[in-house]
Amino acid sequence: MEEFALTKIVNHHGTEREKLMPILQEIVDKQSYLSDDDMVKVANALQLSAAEVYGTASFYSFLPTQKRGIYVIRVCKSIIARMKGSQEVLQAISDQLNLKPGETTADGLFSLEEVNDIGWSDHEPAMLINDKVYTDLTPEKATRIISKYLEQASQSKLSFNPTQN
């Protein structure tokens, strides 16, 4: 992330240790992951060691330290989700994007993950795409949703390289 953008985020939250999570969360919101360089810069700003910042980030599944897609698809894999057909939904998305769970598409647009309970056992199968939630999924419905994202991306000619955000 550019120095300027990062400084703005840090200034907005402040430099106390307790602001570390909000700062890291906002960086992930803006560019989908934390680069080594960003973590060093945040550490300097908050007068922490880089290891402390990395140690914190690496604990949290929503604070990735490896490159991810612009859109992170998180399909719930709780027992209830499984009973209601989440595996078929996952398979459909996986086929559509030619992407296995844990991977990111070559164009940097999508990452696919399976996650623990996301709080929708009354409407499984469910998934999150960044901070939007989709429930009562079927393979068809999930495919339609992903198609919309693909359309949107091609219309806005999104730069598929998340580091250029």
């Binding site: 709780s78 027992i79 209830i80 623990n116 309970d117 709080g119 929708w120 056992s121 009354d122």
Partner: peptide, 8 residues
């Protein structure tokens, strides 16, 4: 934080 499986 409501993370317990089956809670919503």
């Amino acid at each position: 934080d409501e993370g317990e499986p089956g809670t919503f």
